[in-house]
Write a protein that binds this DNA or RNA. Structure first.
Lengths: 125, 125
DNA sequence: CTAAAACCTGACGTTGACGTCAGAGGCAAG
DNA sequence: CTTGCCTCTGACGTCAACGTCAGGTTTTAG
């Protein structure tokens, strides 16, 4: 009980967030502009993030990869907080899930098509 | 053997291609600009497509949905023709397959994350 | 023959998630 | 104190697959 006396010790700066999350500094600033992050500021104006901002940024990347927009991610962020979710948000969650599911099927179909072509080009070089 | 005397009878115009393939006329012109289609021309300059252009356009859509660019699709078009494929093209086929496979895994992971959140928000409304 | 519908060629606009550059400060090390 | 890296705020650039509009020709239905 010596290094964990305060709740939120040792905030990190934007460079560390970016490096640990595997994105660019510009991207992290962009997430703030889109309302996904609201870091504290040092007296000189530098952004200060809690350590788990890294986890959050990775989550954003995952959602972006799934085709969600910044706006959607921002709208669904309260769901990340237990108890802060209404009917509309739960409906959006399900809608996005359905979108991803459909996209998965499309990708699988495209993969099958490519496999067909690959097989033909391999047996008929 | 009365309606199929010629090899490639009754070409269709761009509107029919677009409607049957479920895309816009603009999209079909764009595919031509990108080298994916090379329709014949009527004396007055209108584009004339063989009927199976519809199948081709659907295939383009599928590849676009899988994240391929017009350029990549154009480069891989010869593979569609049996016997017109070299080593480089077969390598590209495999590379794209790997990309799609990775994307599939990413999407599946995102879907799982969303399902987690959905479950939590459902049990803690 | 005429009016509607379809087609043509440019060419500029859109969208989203950043990249990139400019110019100016901030911070630990030597 | 200065060197070098990190950070700041704008603000313009990018890329891809089209959308959209303008202004004109062609085909088709009646």
């Amino acid at each position: 009980m010596a290094t964990t006396d305060a709740v939120d010790a040792r905030p990190i700066r934007i460079g560390e967030v970016a490096r640990d999350a595997g994105v660019s500094v510009r991207a992290v600033r962009y997430y703030e502009q889109e309302g996904l992050l609201t870091p504290r500021r040092s007296p000189s104006g530098q952004r200060l993030y809690p350590r788990d901002a890294v986890v959050l940024v990775r989550f954003f990347q995952q959602m972006y990869a799934a085709g969600l927009t910044s706006r959607r991610i921002a709208e669904l962020l309260p769901c990340w907080d237990i108890g802060h979710t209404n009917a509309e948000q739960r409906a959006m969650l399900r809608a996005e899930r359905a979108r991803i599911r459909a996209k998965l099927d499309d990708l699988q179909a495209a993969l099958d098509r490519l496999d067909e072509i690959i097989e033909v080009t391999d047996t008929h070089p």
